[in-house]
């Protein structure tokens, strides 16, 4: 079995790679080769930084169609920006069209929240740190992870899918926003499982054992 971590020079792939190697004996490769990606058994699609740069890099490497294809055929894990660009459009940087696997948009926190939450705590952007995920779907990737477990987040934008049924987890940061989505062979999470200690490693382990059925 081979797990391909898609490299489009956006973000710290080494962390994802090291964490996967920690939880599986399967071969884990970091690659931007369409053939390697199409031949792999599982796909991890990470990402960090700005949506526009991500899309530019994916286009430059002719990976948009490849990502679209494997996201419909193999167990597929999107992480952080790798979740956001699955949507149709992001408002980031004046607006950028994304991969469009799911109908919906990527929104900026500042357009939806105030300076503090209901309890009076300041909401600083980016949200940086450990927040809870309420599991809104039963899913094999949540196996052995407690509901409301804390994961490590760093982000200023969040996904807003049209189809609320694909939301798999929800987090509160001034508003309740979708922090995980899942449909068929795809699971995507806004937090960084590779940096979320034992619960994060458990999620990655669950992914390496997942048959891609929801």
């Amino acid at each position: 079995m081979t797990i391909a971590v898609i490299d489009y020079s956006m973000g710290n792939l080494h962390s994802v790679h090291k964490a996967l190697q920690h939880v599986t004996d399967d071969k884990v490769i970091i690659t931007s080769s369409p053939d390697d990606i199409l031949n792999a058994d599982r796909i991890v699609f990470p990402g960090q930084g700005a949506a526009r740069d991500c899309m530019n890099e994916l286009h430059k490497r002719e990976l948009v169609d490849v990502v679209k294809e494997v996201s419909q055929t193999k167990p597929f894990l999107g992480v952080c920006m790798g979740m956001q660009v699955l949507m149709e459009h992001s408002v980031e940087g004046g607006g950028v069209d994304c991969i469009g696997l799911y109908n919906g948009t990527v929104q900026h926190f500042t357009d939806h929240i105030g300076a503090t939450d209901a309890a009076g705590s300041r909401l600083k952007i980016p949200q940086m740190g450990w927040n809870q995920i309420r599991q809104t779907q039963n899913h094999p990737l949540w196996k052995d992870i407690k509901d409301q477990a804390r994961f490590y987040f760093v982000h200023s934008y969040f996904v807003d899918p049209d189809d609320k049924a694909i939301i798999a987890g929800e987090t509160e940061f001034g508003i309740h926003y979708p922090s995980a989505i899942a449909k068929e062979n795809v699971f995507a999470i806004q937090a960084h499982p590779e940096k979320s200690a034992d619960d994060g490693l458990q999620l990655l382990k669950n992914f390496t054992q997942w048959d891609g059925q929801a």
Partner: peptide, 8 residues
């Protein structure tokens, strides 16, 4: 429930 304060 919200973002936790971190100990580093």
């Amino acid at each position: 429930m919200s973002l936790a304060k971190r100990i580093i």
